[in-house]
Design a binder for these strands. Structure first.
Lengths: 146, 146
DNA sequence: CTAGGTGCAAAGCATTTGCCTCACT
DNA sequence: AGTGAGGCAAATGCTTTGCACCTAG
């Protein structure tokens, strides 16, 4: 993500936190920034690793609690893929995922057409739709080459 | 699932096992049947529970190993949702999921339109597409009522 | 000042592994 | 005899919880 884009995200983040009443702590800033700087949909462990150089005393519990809090308020989103650890994504607007079934890599996909697929009547009639996303399971070029 | 439909699935199952060279054991039959009889996308624990009356000595390890084996050969499929336990589904052909974000219920959705969405060029060009599915996150009627 | 946040350690579960036994070729 | 499968128990690993201390607002 570009520097200027990051700035916008960070300002948005601060604004949302104040709005909700979440204290802005150095740890929370660090966790949010770590997410912005990592487009691989890191899991809590990976975020923890990327923060420890700067905050050697931060604990995994804090990372878990913080991510959970952010996700609960929609500041970040949870991504679940074909493997079992939860991953997080700072992009909360509608987007889709390409998951390589071999190396488990997750790539974001922004696509106008997919954003406006026809919502089946069955869903519209009975449920309150929160969001939807399309998961593509693929073998990526690198894995295919092997 | 209707009785006659189940029969077809079971015969298919037996056929696939023989083809692959998997021994057909009472435990494996029981696990597969449990999956057929439960359209709630059960997790290993739930499958274990539904089998114990008939097979009191079966172990969780067997359930895990068996499900993993079935999934590896494409006999059943793994479903991952917005919560963290893995769930399984005997239906391996393309279908989509409605997940209630409150009660975590998962409902299968068969939909012609969704089966033929436009695959983005970005994917077609670089990757070998295995499958895709659409996840709808909703608040279901029961939860909305509360 | 004080509610909310952090960090540590322990607990809790889901899942996996190792290994021995058994059944069927 | 040898291979594949099952069952038990232990290990692993991710995630959550409880609690005492601390800090941002």
């Amino acid at each position: 993500m570009s520097q200027s884009n990051q700035q916008i995200y960070i300002e948005n983040f601060l604004h949302r936190c104040r709005e909700i009443g979440l204290n802005i702590t150095p740890q929370r800033m660090a966790i949010y920034k770590a997410l912005l700087n990592d487009d691989s949909h890191p899991n809590p462990e990976a975020i923890y690793q990327s923060i420890t150089p700067e905050y050697p005393t931060i604990s995994m519990a804090t990372v878990y609690k913080t991510l959970e809090t952010f996700a609960r308020y929609g500041i970040i989103s949870m991504v679940t893929t074909l493997h079992n650890t939860v991953r997080y994504d700072p992009i909360t607007k509608r987007h889709h995922h390409i998951v390589c079934v071999r190396c488990k890599k997750v790539i974001d996909l922004l696509d106008q057409d997919l954003d406006s697929i026809k919502i089946p009547n069955k869903i519209k009639k009975n449920n309150q739709l929160i969001n939807y996303s399309v998961h593509f399971n693929v073998i990526c070029p690198e894995c295919k080459g092997k």
